[in-house]
Design a protein around this nucleic acid. Structure first.
Lengths: 221, 221
DNA sequence: CGGCACCGGAGAGGTCGATTCCTCTTCTCG
DNA sequence: CGAGAAGAGGAATCGACCTCTCCGGTGCCG
């Protein structure tokens, strides 16, 4: 059945779908590298499609970015769930997720685009954020319960950490990713509970998800 | 004597000097928050001076930024030297320097501006970078020799770490600094040599100063 | 083979920012 | 005290650049 309902896309229609994928891909890369100010034309160029096609699919730059944010978050959710499912050890799952998120193997794009916050919050975005939160909670709670992750680390720290770790530095994508992973290793070392260290409590309070959503969404205009 | 030579600045001249300080201060803040694309007018606004005055002092935005980079680097050098002088314990000195650099107490500005690399390298910049390197080498070597800092951490990691840690997030300056310090604590925990952990070697190779200077300076045009 | 739906890309119109220019103020000095 | 220098301030200039629209060309279907 499945195929019968929508009909397997063929010809022109198939190209449109492929274009859409390339678009998301390109948008991820470009926004990650240049930030919100990246010219739309650059996205089109990298996707190998014309401006016309891009704007037919998404009515505005903002809509494009919104969609990309959702796709990005869903990708993180998938990576979190996969890590959880494939790694029996809670610490391994946690560490693997962070590494996957940074190297972003699935998408091929070198960086992940939590991107230009300060866009109006769509219902879809809110929903995606909720799913992301749930997934990260699972990951972090699991590690906490296993006693391998320092207790003063919250799940809301994860997106912020990723955002810090993906700081844009003007080197080749490959080297940038390598450096990101290097510093992730450092942070993982600091995150792991060690029975020897006592006085290493974090001094500033953890962020919570309310703070994150304020940070990600425009002040409800 | 001393005063006789230049004459203690008075009146208009004195105001000009004060303006210059405010300018550097404002530039630090604004560039730190908005990045290289920050409008010059915003810097002037925050410094409380007019565009005319700004442009009489610095012939272009680029020159202004260059000077600011030098001032920023010198400030880091001072902080490093101070930490080294005032903290007998190598680890304490190292940690204190990083904390100082992030909270930037001396300047009053909330963030430090390693800023928009990719500007042509002035001789002055090269010299300042060399002094910075020397200071950081001292700090890192001291900790290494004391055996309190993991061996695979290089002095060239310091500027990169700072750059990562100061990732711009759109919250109040105070909260941003708090979060930066939070993640610094995490990294410090990971940086400290612990005799218990073996398998935590960093996977990506350390950066070196040659890489940094490429990253900071425009490809000699 | 004709028509439709879609593609790519040049260009209109508008925003925004670096730099300049001109006016008004504050000192300095004879 | 008045003229002139040295600045201060900020509006106006001159482009650069970007988003989004419009249009001629092309491949696929019947």
């Amino acid at each position: 059945m499945g195929d019968t309902q929508t009909g397997r896309p063929r010809g022109r229609r198939r190209e449109a779908d492929r274009n859409d994928e390339r678009l998301m891909q390109a948008a991820r890369e470009v926004f990650a590298e240049l930030g919100w100010d990246a010219p739309v034309s650059e996205i089109a160029r990298r996707a190998g499609i014309g401006m016309g096609s891009l704007y037919r699919r998404y009515p505005s730059k903002e809509m494009l970015a919104q969609r990309m944010r959702i796709v990005g978050m869903e990708q993180l959710v998938t990576q979190a769930r996969t890590a959880l499912a494939e790694e029996p050890d809670p610490w391994a799952a946690f560490a693997r997720f962070l590494r996957d998120a940074l190297s972003d193997q699935g998408a091929g794009g070198p960086l992940l685009p939590l991107v230009g916050g300060r866009l109006p919050a769509t219902d879809e975005i809110v929903a995606a954020a909720a799913r992301l939160r749930a997934a990260l909670d699972d990951l972090v709670d699991g590690a906490h319960r296993a006693g391998v992750l320092r207790a003063d680390f919250a799940s809301a720290d994860v997106p912020l950490l990723l955002e810090h770790l993906t700081a844009r530095i003007p080197v080749t994508d490959e080297r940038a990713t390598a450096l990101h992973l290097r510093y992730l290793d450092l942070i993982l070392a600091g995150l792991r509970t060690s029975t020897t260290d006592g006085p290493t409590a974090l001094q500033s309070p953890a962020p919570d998800w309310a703070e994150l959503s304020e940070l990600w969404n425009a002040p409800k205009k």
